[in-house]
């Protein structure tokens, strides 16, 4: 309904009444158009932020962990997926270092997100042959940065896993 102003009509062109009609119908048409368009853009382009959770999850017993021998631990994570509460299985590659410091790596290669595995004392991503050392550093292949790490804390024998922090190159 909005912009018909490109159309001209010969004989009535000079009439002020016609001019008034044209102005009002364009202004009102534009007002309605904007009143629909702006909320729509906001609705589509500003997705809700979602709930940030800083909860700690129990990833399991690590008392049997041997230094430099990574294990893949799995745990349940519950989160809001839009309107739905979902429980997902998450995994972490957990390594105990020489200094007994425990590190938990995110299970995806930092190149394109493939799942990697542990083989011959290093982490190997089968997709594009990235190799990571046991402390998560890239030793060969296309991955641009070290493996991502979960925030961890130790509660007795149990490993608590927090947010997955993106590593920096």
């Amino acid at each position: 309904m909005s912009t018909h102003k490109a159309v001209h009509h010969g004989d009535a062109a000079g009439s002020t009444r016609r001019g008034f009609h044209l102005i009002v119908l364009n202004v009102l048409g534009a007002a309605v158009t904007f009143a629909i368009a702006i909320p729509t853009l906001v609705y589509l382009l500003f997705p809700p932020k979602g709930v940030k959770d800083n909860g700690w999850l129990d990833a399991g017993d690590i008392s049997q962990l041997v230094p430099n021998d990574p294990v893949e631990l799995s745990f349940q994570k519950t989160r809001m997926d839009g309107w739905r509460l979902v429980t997902e299985k998450k995994t972490a590659w957990v390594v105990k270092g020489e200094d007994n410091k425990v590190t938990a790596f995110g299970p995806q290669c930092t190149h394109l997100g493939c799942a990697y595995h542990f083989e011959n004392k290093q982490f190997v991503c089968p997709c594009h042959n990235t190799f990571f050392s046991i402390d998560g550093k890239v030793t060969a292949g296309p991955a641009p940065r070290p493996l991502d790490q979960y925030l961890v804390k130790i509660d007795g024998n149990r490993l608590q896993v927090g947010e997955l922090k993106k590593s920096v190159a």
Binding site: H4, L25, L28, V32
Partner: peptide
């Protein structure tokens, strides 16, 4: 009469009022 602009003007005013109420 011509549909444009006089009747279109009336229609647009009505659409505007209806939409304003709806909004």
């Amino acid at each position: 009469k011509m549909f444009f602009p006089e009747q279109v003007f009336k229609d647009t005013v009505a659409v505007f009022v209806a939409f304003a109420i709806l909004f």
